[in-house]
């Protein structure tokens, strides 16, 4: 294809996106579009899978049968999200095994929030309320993103995430209205998860390298800082309602902006965790790589069995 032909195709492609048409797997797309989507979608899938670990950590110790059932269902939902996000990404010409390889070698990232430990039961509440809350703010705009398979996956993901968020908030509410010990547990969890949750919405706009192109492709509709403000404005009243205190002495309602002003985020901590030196980065990767390696003989057996079955079937036909 000549350079001019490619330019022409690119122009038509951008026009389709501008008209809000969906791009489908068999459509022509610029290589950069494909790569950017593989990067973002696989990162999203990895986040779901690694995200199973901090919550999975409390399944065996959930305080009641009702909570245990809800937590199992939630972690199962996350595995399901991972599954259809991997499948959606496969439509762009990369296999799930290749994506795993990228995760296991550290080439692909996942959400840094999962590199923090879940040390008390209240963390199950805080993760649902704050982490899923921040995730929804990031993800709702993606229901209208330009790549069809991603947009459709996100519609389902968002529905379930919003259920998880309510469930997390309900855990916190129960603790906040419980005994002093339970309330203290809830406040402690909020203290630990608040700042990492704000960081989940990404670096400040000045530092964000992908924003402009992503906006054009509708992979992003608002800037990181706008999303962060939205999250804070939505979450502060929820904390007030259950009598918990946001751990930010500079947090203050700004009448003029009709928004909350908030304190400085520790970006050094953010970059430290992103670069692999958070409290749980190594453990999370060890768990993922470990499960993969330990499971190799099982996957090999399943393949061998499927081959044998196919052979037998062919013999029967002959």
């Amino acid at each position: 294809m000549s350079e001019e032909q490619i330019k022409n195709l690119e122009k038509q492609f951008e026009e389709r996106i501008a008209r809000d048409e969906k791009i489908e797997p068999k459509d022509w797309m610029p290589e950069k579009y494909r790569k950017t989507h593989i990067r973002q979608m696989s990162q999203h899938a990895h986040s779901e899978i690694v995200g199973m670990l901090p919550e999975g950590n409390w399944i065996t110790r959930a305080p009641s049968l009702r909570r245990k059932v809800a937590l199992l269902a939630k972690v199962q939902d996350e595995a399901g999200h991972g599954l259809y996000l991997y499948s959606a990404t496969e439509t762009l010409g990369i296999s799930r095994d290749e994506m795993y390889e990228q995760l296991h070698t550290g080439k692909a990232k996942y959400s840094s929030i999962f590199n923090y430990p879940t040390v008390t039961w209240a963390d199950m509440g805080a993760i649902g309320w704050l982490v899923d809350g921040a995730a929804i703010i990031n993800q709702v705009p993606l229901c209208n993103t330009s790549y069809g398979p991603y947009a459709r996956a996100m519609i389902r993901v968002c529905k379930e995430e919003s259920f998880h968020q309510r469930q997390g908030y309900e855990i916190m509410m129960k603790l906040a209205n419980g005994t002093p010990e339970q309330k203290e547990m809830a406040q402690d969890a909020l203290n630990r998860w608040w700042w990492p949750s704000l960081m989940m919405l990404g670096p400040t706009d000045a530092e964000s390298i992908h924003t402009e192109q992503s906006m054009k492709w509708k992979l992003k509709r608002k800037s990181n800082d706008d999303l962060r403000q939205q999250f804070i404005d939505q979450t502060v009243p929820q904390a007030d309602l259950i009598g918990l205190t946001i751990p930010d002495p500079d947090l203050k309602w700004n009448e003029e902006r009709q928004s909350y002003d908030f304190g400085d985020i520790d970006w050094d901590e953010f970059w430290q965790v992103v670069k692999g030196h958070g409290p749980m980065n190594k453990e999370r990767m060890k768990a993922r790589v470990g499960a993969w390696e330990v499971g190799e003989w099982v996957r090999d057996a399943a393949m061998a069995y499927a081959d044998k079955k196919q052979e037998r079937k062919e013999k029967q036909v002959v």
Binding site: I49, M52, L53, G56, I59, T60, K68, L72, V75, Q76, A79, G82, L83, Y86, A287, G290, A291, V294, G295, E296, V298, R299, A302
Partner: peptide
């Protein structure tokens, strides 16, 4: 419940 997140494949998990 001990196994959640540690299965040999996502489907078995």
């Amino acid at each position: 419940g001990e196994l959640t997140g540690h299965g040999p494949t996502l489907e078995t998990d």
